[in-house]
Design a protein around this nucleic acid. Structure first.
Lengths: 110, 110
DNA sequence: ATAGTTAATCGCAAATATACGATTGATATT
DNA sequence: AATATCAATCGTATATTTGCGATTAACTAT
């Protein structure tokens, strides 16, 4: 069993970074983000036309991206316009950068 | 239903990036990677001592990181020494960077 | 050969993720 | 008020993930 006397760093950073990574862990969600970045914004319907998925499934993926904070939607009745959530996007970008920019590259091992 | 006449770009890039992101999508795996990056390398046992998880669970996470290509293990009987897989690590880093470095930041929306 | 150490694997349970069709809710339009 | 449109949500089924204890496999050391 693990030694709970040396608790791991379940830090806010790790949890938040994991949350962003999870949002990015499905090809369809990457494609949605890519699409949004190219179109600057779009409606759910546009995505449903482009993706080989049911409307409810696309909506589900959008919900996850929204909950992760990577996108935001504004009501534009009767449609909803989605776009990248810049602030959180940059946050995710920075978290990932600082995670990957450790300096273990100088050290050789294995 | 989705329009399959406009198939999505289930490109190799999206699939590979999603694979890396999935490996990063769990706090424990991030902590393992962080630990490896600081120690340059370590044995499975070291991680089991540090993490509040069963040995089998840690082994499972290591397996996933290995399958994603982010770490590699070399046999050092009777132990196994793990470290970051530099080449794939840099690949993941670059894929993520190019994904996040789209230029939609200039555009305002929503 | 026997015993000890280390880590992977197996078998299981619970939780979560993925996808769908059907329904609902909100807002325009007629 | 009735209808149409769009997207979220519900209910369901299946697959995957996460975690554990127990076992197995590989190798050392005695």
């Amino acid at each position: 069993m693990g030694n709970t006397l040396h608790p791991i760093d379940y830090s806010a950073t790790s949890i938040e970074l994991a949350k962003f990574a999870k949002a990015l862990s499905h090809p369809v969600r990457l494609i949605i983000l890519k699409y949004l970045s190219n179109q600057t914004c779009c409606f759910t319907g546009d995505l449903v036309e482009v993706l080989p998925l049911a409307q409810s499934t696309v909506s589900q993926h959008l919900k996850e991206l929204k909950e992760a904070g990577l996108i935001q939607g504004t009501v534009n009745p009767p449609k909803i316009k989605y776009c990248i959530h810049k602030e959180n996007w940059n946050k995710a970008k920075e978290l990932l950068n600082s995670f990957f920019d450790e300096d273990f590259n100088k050290i050789s091992c294995c």
